[in-house]
Design a protein around this nucleic acid. Structure first.
Lengths: 148, 148
DNA sequence: AATATCTACTTGCATGATGCAAGTTATCCT
DNA sequence: AGGATAACTTGCATCATGCAAGTAGATATT
């Protein structure tokens, strides 16, 4: 039941909250795959909320979950194509935040990414396609350390 | 008090909810300015929530409010530069939603916008700068109407 | 084989946010 | 002066979130 037919509104019904896009970010640029990794992501999400968000994102077709062949206690989450298509949204959010708020991300690095938007998106998508596990961005710890 | 220094996380602290970006959308592309207009925006936001979001967005420096010179009952809200800088985020959200969800927006129109990203953003920004009141996008009513 | 540990959750409960209806204040319109 | 309009605020019920603890199945350890 949509409140309006606007794509922005419908998108926000799916991930318009404090946590969903952070999970998607972790999957997209930090190489995280498991429940435990999301939990220790530095944002302090509660386990019940994390579980409910993972379910909601699965139901929306943004992520999938499959048991790890090597250790079947683990579930490996992965973005779907629909999920990786959120890369431009995340990138713009990152650029905006780094420009306008006092964040732990060095502006020079972010401005460089803003200048090379297409290349950045292509690389993120390539890593997703090829299941390249290397993180694309680090954790921006706090606003104290300056880098760049 | 930030939970992490990540710009995405900090951005979501400000407008990571169901309503804030819809208000920003209304200001940005529909030419809305007043409390009443946001309320009748088709999304069904409650007045107390709307009031609290407007305050939060003001506190974050994303919008300003000033009394209408002609009718001093009215408060005219307007995006700041920081606020109009959210245009790329909104645009990507719009594109993603139109591509992946069943929305009231005709895909052809949205794909055209995706192809002309820079021009679209320039026009949105021009209207903001010159206070051009014409809406840039219509209300996408429901998913019933045909697309083409 | 028994025990401990690890992973991904679920449950219970307190607190906070949201939704809804009604009320308030200041300004306009006649 | 009397009524309408705009922008809220308030009270209250309900829903979502945060936190701590507990559970179940798989793996590692003795």
């Amino acid at each position: 039941m949509h409140r309006s037919g606007c794509p922005v509104s419908i998108s926000l019904e799916i991930f318009g909250d404090r946590w969903s896009l952070l999970i998607i970010r972790d999957l997209m640029v930090r190489g995280y795959r498991t429940f435990r990794e999301f939990q220790k992501s530095g944002e302090g999400i509660a386990t019940n909320i994390l579980a409910s968000r993972l379910k909601k994102l699965q139901a929306a077709g943004i992520i999938t979950a499959e048991p790890d062949p090597g250790d079947r206690r683990r579930l490996n989450y992965r973005l779907t194509e629909k999920g990786i298509d959120l890369a431009p949204v995340l990138l713009e959010l990152l650029i905006w935040g780094a420009r306008h708020e006092d964040t732990g991300a060095p502006c020079s690095v972010i401005e460089e990414m803003a200048k090379n938007r297409e290349a950045v998106l292509a690389e993120v998508r390539r890593r997703w396609r090829e299941r390249d596990p290397r993180p694309f961005l680090p954790r921006f710890e706090s606003t104290e350390d300056g880098r760049g």
